[in-house]
Design a protein around this nucleic acid. Structure first.
Lengths: 351, 351
DNA sequence: TTGAAAGCGTTACCAA
DNA sequence: TTGGTAACGCTTTCAA
């Protein structure tokens, strides 16, 4: 009679139709909930639904994709999946948003290699993804490969200025301003030291300093010292330790990222200078590292999860064409205190 | 004449065939490199290859999938993508292995929710994935959902003992033995303190202690003290600080994971006891956290990347049916030193 | 209110 | 050596 199952043994739409005694067409309309536009009798509707249930029918999405030319897959090309947790958070956000719109994520890692990137793009395009996300671990400039024509693209935490695609970036300048406001709010208006170089490999994040200085200036506050060094633990430790050795004494240290802050903690502990009793510390990134530090680190956070979400929203909305910068919220921590709250001032120490 | 392009505007196999003046069949065989089994004249072969090149032809993988009932997609169901970096490393390993065999990863996050898990499994099965990886952030027991019949499955860093699927787990017992060997090798055979409870939520990792004790015993070495506490920073800090307060003095501290080690560092620093001068510290996990500690942490590492790789290898090899436990290598760090190398002994201190 | 048939782009059987 | 034709499972136009 009705041919049951196929190669895979799974019931097909035809099977359902046969069992319900209707055509595949009818079954298709009903199972897609398009029953209104077709004026299906509630009787057959029920029969079909029942048959589908009894058979445990599930549509074959590959077949659907072939027919409709839409896979409901978003390809994610990322430089380092495992890279310092950051890409993973973007991924999580993107995934959450994708699931909400009945899409699924397909991922590929490039290790920063151009050739691999191109291959991956081909791979994804061949697989008819509905859109492509380019995700970078570090806020940066990139160069998108060829072969993207006809594909929707959003770049996340990175930007190709020579391409017309929307990007989702953190508002690092605004983040700098936010740090400044935190300092001012706590009454920390002198002895402010900034650790970390301005022009860094983390290219786009450099503007943090601009935002900071700009906002401080609006309240007539100036930075007491700038210690230029690469954005990592050991260099930051060296930079601050050296400055302290030379007799420098900060009231607040602004660290350009959390790794720098960790180095700063070590240098302060050597003196020792108590955090936050004698010195307040504020940083950028809002990474897990800061949660491990004691006292926990106040840090202006990169909203990676939200960036992932937003990127998918933009990608799936045909009307969206504009890039977006995302607010960097202050992640509170115990490393900041108002000066008058300082419990341990006046310990022995000199230059 | 020859109809060019289709809905999507991309050249199809038919286009290539037309341009080369052959049938789609012939073109298909040639472009799949199956030229030998078909005895194709090198002349037409060239023509087809050329046509494909000129048109920039790329096969439509959706169509291929529908026809061949193989998507070359591996579905990855993970509890927390962003979870502590661990799942991300497994993902990276799985991705590397998948790419090598011309497969691609499709991911989904469950947030530990059973219902979401079931939905995701359906989603992936509907999409005809060639296999499914279940990945847990924490080595643990799980319960696989229904609906997996006919799908290849491998569980990574977790296991469903009531299912017949292969699993890939870290060899925690062997890891415990490795830690013991490191201690013995460094001559640290007394004053050994273990921090972290045995029966933990990290269920399967509990055997670390068994392996440690067992291997120490083989050399006649015994653990001096066991400090039971949850596997996290603050509890570990509290446990060791309390013990030190009561006059305890360790020669070596074994931490059941790196978060515990972080707490242990803090407690030792309070006394202070120098690491590794006065006290050596060894841990488990090999996480990024340990790379941030100063001195860097010696830790028996969970081989997550390799586990991901191995899982994919097993998944794609129809002959493989056996579970696997993966060696936990010692990640060296500056937190261990042989006793005679201790530079700073004899500082003032008492109980 | 329903169904036949064409078609998505490929692969593969069988005949020529 | 090659090509016609059916089939994979579904959606959609058009006619009934």
């Amino acid at each position: 009679m009705s041919r049951t199952g196929t190669r895979s043994g799974k019931p097909t739409l035809t099977d359902v139709a046969a069992r319900a005694g209707v055509s595949a067409t009818t079954a298709s309309y009903i199972l897609n909930g398009r029953t209104l536009e077709m004026r299906i009798s509630s009787d057959t509707e029920e029969r079909v639904q029942l048959a589908a249930q009894e058979l445990g029918y599930r549509p074959n999405r590959t077949a659907q994709s072939l027919r409709t030319a839409s896979t409901r897959i978003i390809g994610v090309v990322t430089d380092y999946v495992a890279g310092g947790m950051f890409s993973a958070r973007i991924l999580a956000g993107a995934n959450a948003a994708a699931r909400q719109q009945d899409h699924v994520l397909m991922i590929g890692e490039t290790d920063g290699d151009t050739r691999t990137t191109t291959e991956l793009v081909h791979e994804f395009v061949d697989r008819q993804v509905d859109g492509l996300l380019f995700v970078a671990r570090t806020t940066s400039s990139i160069r998108l490969p060829q072969g993207l024509a006809g594909t929707r693209v959003v770049t996340v935490n990175c930007i190709d200025t020579s391409s017309p695609y929307p990007s989702v970036l953190p508002d690092d300048r605004g983040g700098g301003r936010r740090a400044a406001e935190a300092l001012i709010g706590a009454g920390l208006t002198d002895g402010i030291v900034v650790v970390g170089e301005d022009t860094t490999t983390e290219a786009l994040a450099g503007v943090r300093v601009d935002g900071l200085v700009e906002r401080l200036a609006e309240d007539g506050v100036r930075v007491a010292a700038r210690l230029e060094c690469p954005w990592n633990l050991d260099d930051a430790y060296g930079a601050l330790a050296g400055w302290l050795d030379r007799g420098g004494r900060p009231r607040a240290v602004v660290c350009l990222n959390d790794r720098v802050a960790w180095g700063v903690y070590h240098a302060l502990a050597d003196v020792p200078l108590a955090v936050p009793g004698e010195v307040s510390v504020i940083s950028f990134d809002g990474s897990e590292l800061g949660r491990w530090m004691r006292p926990t680190l106040a840090s202006v956070a990169l909203p990676f999860f939200e960036m992932g979400q937003e990127a998918v929203r933009i990608l799936l909305d045909p009307a969206e064409k504009e890039s977006v910068v995302m607010d960097m919220p202050l992640l509170p921590g115990d490393s900041m205190a108002a000066p008058f709250a300082a419990p341990l001032s006046g310990v022995e120490r000199e230059g």
